[in-house]
Amino acid sequence: MADRSVRLARRNVDSLFASILMPLLMMALFVYVFGGAISTGTEYINYVVPGILLLTTGYGAASTAMVVADDMHSGMIDRLRSLPIRGFAVLAGHVTGSVARNAAATAIVVLASLAMGFRPGGGVLDWLATIGLLLLYVLALSWLAAGLGVIAKSVESASTLSFFMLFLPYLSSAFVRPETMPSWLRPVSEHQPITPVIETVRSLLIGTPMGNNGWIALAWCCGLLLFSVLLATSLYRRQTSR
Rank of each mutant, 00 (worst) to 15 (best):
G41Q: 11
A146P: 02
M22H: 06
S159F: 06
L29S: 06
S241G: 10
A104N: 01
V31E: 12
M76P: 02
G36F: 05
S241H: 12
F167G: 09
Y236P: 10
A219N: 12
V150N: 09
I77M: 15
W220N: 01
S241A: 15
S5Y: 15
Y47P: 04
P50G: 05
W215F: 08
P193H: 04
A158S: 07
I45E: 10
L125H: 03
M26C: 09
S189N: 07
M181L: 14
A140T: 00
V67I: 11
D78Y: 12
H73E: 11
I52A: 05
G36D: 05
L204Q: 03
A129R: 11
A115R: 07
M1Y: 14
V33A: 09
A219I: 06
T180W: 10
Y170N: 02
A89L: 10
T40S: 11
V68Q: 02
S19D: 08
C222G: 08
N102Q: 08
L185S: 02
M116F: 13
V124M: 13
F17C: 01
T40Q: 03
V95L: 04
Y236I: 06
N12V: 11
L225F: 12
R10T: 03
E43V: 09
F17Y: 07
A9H: 10
R242A: 14
G97T: 04
S159N: 15
N102A: 03
S228M: 00
P23N: 14
F30K: 09
L230P: 08
A61V: 00
G36H: 02
L205M: 13
F30R: 04
N102L: 04
F17I: 06
L54D: 00
F30V: 06
F30E: 04
F163N: 10
I77R: 10
L224A: 03
S172W: 00
R119I: 05
V201I: 14
V6W: 13
S154P: 09
S162R: 00
L218Q: 07
A140V: 00
M181W: 02
V6S: 12
L24M: 06
Y170E: 03
R86S: 15
G35Q: 04
W127A: 04
V33E: 11
N212C: 08
T233W: 12
